[in-house]
Design a protein around this nucleic acid. Sequence first.
DNA 1: GCAAGATGCTTAACATGTTAAGTGTCTCGG
DNA 2: CCGAGACACTTAACATGTTAAGCATCTTGC
Lengths: 159, 159
Amino acid sequence: MREFSRSLPMSLLRAREAVMRQFRPSLRRHDLTEQQWRILRALAAIEAIEVTELARTAFLLGPSLSRILRDLDARGLIERKTAKTDLRRGVVSISEKGLKLMEVVAPSSEAIYAAITRCYGAKRLAELQDMLGTLEASLSGLEFADEGEAGGGNECNFA
Amino acid sequence: MREFSRSLPMSLLRAREAVMRQFRPSLRRHDLTEQQWRILRALAAIEAIEVTELARTAFLLGPSLSRILRDLDARGLIERKTAKTDLRRGVVSISEKGLKLMEVVAPSSEAIYAAITRCYGAKRLAELQDMLGTLEASLSGLEFADEGEAGGGNECNFA
DNA sequence: GCAAGATGCTTAACATGTTAAGTGTCTCGG
DNA sequence: CCGAGACACTTAACATGTTAAGCATCTTGC
């Protein structure tokens, strides 16, 4: 079997960890986790958003998002309402306090991202992101049947 | 601020999730988590290994590894001893039962990996892994000082 | 030797990932 | 209407990520 330290999942994991390690200290200084920061960034870009749509945007599962919204709400960084037309749906937006926090954190975050870009090369970075996007798209159609053991998976149906 | 859904951490996270989604059902059929499978694979490649070294190889933090080894030991999939020359160090190896489990799971795992490779392209996959490795290496020397807010990070010292 | 610090590992505490079950609301066929 | 099923979360339960603290052992300087 292929040496697992060279497998694709490990390569992706290590690369992501190398990137996130740069950001974590800055976020930690403001008592923000990586996921909380993702939520705030997603909210800052729009007026308001439904919970399910936010989960899709921030790439979080429902249960994780539920907990994070509860905590951010308790800290006063977001505001929650219920959709008038459908009482099941929750609508979330960033609060004034949340916006102020973002203004404090963003410069540091931008500086780190810029340093990473400088270090790796802007062109190469764009190329990498492109390849990652293609990988994601390639695999989106590749769903192994959940039945047989090593059983007949479908072939690639990505053009 | 750059739209966060296009940020490098998100690209890496989504790509990795797209890959792992292919493997999870197969592992789940054998009551193995992704991390447990990583440990077994690492152990299968060698005779025995110290816990700290295993953590480095499998890219797990000590506390996570501690729990996983406890569970794998309880299931009889691994064996643990103490190093003779240093009673602090634990030495881990895979058991017969663990090897048999690997023989059952490996074919399915290999088939999935092969499908991914076919789907994305072997050459492109190798190129991607190369770029990920370079990214990791680039950032290994880029350590922001943990002091100032946006404060003067060091420049890139990767050749 | 022996006390102070370093080291290897484990435990603790809290946050998230992941799946399943629970709760309230909506929709639609009868 | 109204009851069955779908839908939008939320809660629960368990495993891992992450940091800090704890414990046992080792090493070093004196």
